[in-house]
Simulated scan of single mutants.
Amino acid sequence: MRTALMLAVMAFATLSCGRSSPPPQLVEAQSFPDATPPSVIFPAFADADPHEWEGRHPGHYPVHGLDVSRWQGAIDWRTAKQSGVSFVFIKATEGGDVADPMFASHRQGAQAAGVPWGAYHYYYFCRSAREQARWFIQNVPKGSDLPHVLDMEWTPHSKTCTLRPDGATVRAEAQQFLDILERHYGRRPIVYTTVDFYGDTNIGRLPKTEFWLRSVAGHPRNVYPKAVWRLWQYTGTGLVPGVQGRVDINVFNGPPEIWARWKSGSP
């Protein structure tokens, strides 16, 4: 009976993902030896600009979450959680002197609603990795539920820095930033990146590093051949109850049992 119910919910999510926003489908959790998460949710969020997915698509993944910044404004986190949001990554810092003014509000709101959170840093290639790591640590307290994130992508539209270092330099800077944060927070951050940046820099060669990949027009296995990924950002135009306007939506690569272990930091 439980298996049949799970398959029925997955089929429903397959039909509805990206086109409408019905109530999230709840399925009884099966076995969580190291944690006790809530019921499994296969949300079917709406999308302002939906993609016609071929083959495996976001609706096949049970664990969905957001990444947000000042541009989302105030968020009703309890409504967002009830709609199927299982996690959030919140922009905290950029470069060595920019802090997102909504970080504290988003973090406190997510915590109060019981939405697991992590913070992300938008990398700036005209400052040192050490300086940027110190800035992040200055602005982000310990106690996150998730690993933090290093967001690395090209910045061709920046008014102050359009540098494009070679791959070896990028990987060395990323390594230094990740090492500093790992020593401070006790958990290695993950790396968020885009298709062109991933291909240009070979950042996927970083050791001991998990990746969060952006791919809004195809599954990561097709867009990032042979890449190993933990999170997939599948849209930047999602519509989620509790959030004003469009928002990025992501899925976790794995079943609820793996999500529970990963979230808790278990190997």
Score class of each variant (00 low, 15 high):
residue 28 E to Y: 04
residue 222 N to K: 14
residue 189 P to I: 06
residue 19 R to T: 13
residue 27 V to W: 03
residue 153 E to W: 09
residue 240 V to R: 07
residue 97 D to V: 06
residue 240 V to A: 11
residue 102 M to W: 07
residue 259 W to G: 04
residue 35 A to C: 15
residue 99 A to V: 15
residue 21 S to Y: 03
residue 217 A to T: 15
residue 10 M to T: 11
residue 209 T to Q: 08
residue 255 P to S: 07
residue 85 V to M: 10
residue 116 P to F: 12
residue 248 D to M: 05
residue 120 Y to M: 04
residue 91 K to C: 00
residue 11 A to L: 12
residue 61 Y to P: 00
residue 221 R to W: 08
residue 229 W to E: 09
residue 260 A to G: 07
residue 263 K to V: 05
residue 262 W to G: 04
residue 187 R to C: 08
residue 44 A to W: 00
residue 24 P to G: 05
residue 212 W to A: 12
residue 31 S to H: 12
residue 14 T to H: 14
residue 34 D to C: 13
residue 138 Q to T: 13
residue 236 G to S: 14
residue 158 S to V: 08
residue 217 A to N: 15
residue 15 L to Y: 08
residue 48 A to R: 10
residue 202 N to A: 06
residue 25 Q to V: 10
residue 66 L to A: 02
residue 165 P to R: 10
residue 136 F to I: 00
residue 245 G to C: 13
residue 142 K to R: 15
residue 125 F to L: 10
residue 104 A to L: 14
residue 5 L to C: 11
residue 29 A to M: 05
residue 61 Y to R: 05
residue 12 F to P: 00
residue 204 G to A: 07
residue 73 G to T: 10
residue 78 R to M: 08
residue 247 V to P: 00
residue 64 H to P: 03
residue 166 D to R: 15
residue 114 G to M: 09
residue 127 R to S: 09
residue 257 E to D: 02
residue 17 C to Q: 13
residue 5 L to A: 13
residue 50 P to N: 02
residue 154 W to Q: 14
residue 62 P to M: 03
residue 87 F to S: 02
residue 81 K to T: 13
residue 115 V to C: 05
residue 212 W to S: 12
residue 92 A to W: 00
residue 211 F to T: 03
residue 167 G to F: 12
residue 107 R to I: 01
residue 77 W to P: 04
residue 189 P to Q: 10
residue 195 V to Y: 09
residue 181 L to Y: 06
residue 251 V to M: 05
residue 217 A to Q: 15
residue 81 K to S: 12
residue 71 W to D: 11
residue 123 Y to D: 00
residue 72 Q to W: 03
residue 130 R to M: 09
residue 175 Q to M: 14
residue 244 Q to I: 15
residue 113 A to N: 12
residue 61 Y to G: 03
residue 163 L to A: 15
residue 232 W to G: 02
residue 194 T to Y: 11
residue 79 T to C: 10
residue 181 L to H: 04
residue 166 D to V: 14
residue 150 L to W: 03
residue 159 K to E: 15
residue 141 P to F: 03
residue 181 L to G: 03
residue 59 G to D: 05
residue 138 Q to P: 07
